[in-house]
Amino acid sequence: MTSEPAIVERRAAPAAASAVRPWLAVVAAPVLLAAALVLSLAVGARFIPFDEVVASLFGAGDQNVLNIVGELRVTRTVNAVVCGVALGGAGVLMQALTRNPIADPGMLGVSAGASFGVVAGLSTFGAIGVGGSIWFALAGAALASSVIFWFAGSRFAAASPVRLVLAGIAFSAILAGGSQALVLTNESVLDAFRFWRVGSLTARPVEEALPLLAFIAVGVVLALPLGPALNMMALGDDSAVSLGVRPGLVRALVLVAVTLLCGTATALAGPISFVGLVIPHLLRRLVGPDLRLVLPLSLFAAPVMLLLADTIGRVIGGGGEVQVGIVTAFIGGPLLIAYVTGRRRRGLS
């Protein structure tokens, strides 16, 4: 019987010539994350030297620096790391399970489902805080994930990755319309929703973000062991079954993991799109398609993207802020257009 590593090696063969050595990517990922963390704390409308940043983290130094770093930038940095881990892992899982290279929690409606759940909770119960909103976000994400994964297995979507994305965009629009209808009928919800809706890393203080790490941790623990099984499922369910994989169980675990990861990120920062699209593409180009490597690396690379996007938003916003969801849209939108138009030119749409 052919071993799973041998199968993965054959699948990765066409990209082997251009792939970065895995050990180099493993070493570079935490280094890049550390550099992005430093930039996030030091760079913004006002540049703060590194020694002053370190001092402020220990409660020393100038009071203005303490306010900027300790109260503002630390919150943004922690939220970016937490949401980046969640969205990067969810994007890899969705692309692997749907066998769709342009799947993304934002475009396929999972983030919109989580948003709808939060808005429904706010409209029904008022200010519910992050402790309450997380459960509504998870319920909405679970519903949306179930619909998308069901549709991904249909003949209509299986024939074309673009069809699944178009259906996901339509589904997102329906959910967004439902959210807007609930918001417009309740003025007390409108102000909180308006800022949170575009994706902001300042929506929740760090003390509210830290308890959500448990949901992210469970999602990551569920996701990481699924890499080998998803590698084999890429060959088709029949081949995967012959190699000892249980596709139904794998799909259920992916559904739970995506719900936990995407729902938590949305409850924390609002819907942030394109992170789950850009990071898996970048990593597959660098290290090949093996999910045993792509999935853990996404947990480092996605926070780097969010940290840099947030830093860029602060710099170009001057004294104000360009929300991170807007910056990631400017990065991911052109990539999606380039991919779709490239497929059409090759006659693959």
Rank of each mutant, 00 (worst) to 15 (best):
S40Q: 07
P30K: 14
L297K: 05
P5N: 10
A90S: 15
V221Y: 06
G89Q: 08
I134T: 14
D104K: 06
V81D: 03
F149K: 05
R46P: 00
A240N: 11
N186T: 12
L72M: 14
L190D: 08
S3K: 04
T98D: 09
G270C: 12
L164E: 03
A203R: 03
Q323S: 06
G153H: 11
I169S: 01
P101N: 13
A209W: 11
L249S: 11
G199E: 09
D290G: 14
I272R: 13
G332M: 05
A42F: 05
S154K: 09
A42Q: 02
V304R: 03
Q323N: 08
G319Q: 14
D237P: 13
R163S: 07
L32I: 13
V81W: 06
A267E: 06
L249W: 14
L249H: 09
I7M: 13
I316S: 07
F116A: 15
G131I: 06
S146E: 03
D237S: 14
R314M: 12
A176E: 06
R21C: 04
N64T: 09
R155N: 13
A209N: 05
M232W: 01
T259K: 09
A144N: 09
F156V: 12
I331E: 04
A269H: 12
V241Q: 08
G333N: 03
G153F: 07
N79T: 08
G313P: 10
A19S: 15
G288H: 02
N67I: 14
L190T: 06
I337Y: 09
S239G: 13
V65Y: 11
W150S: 14
A240C: 10
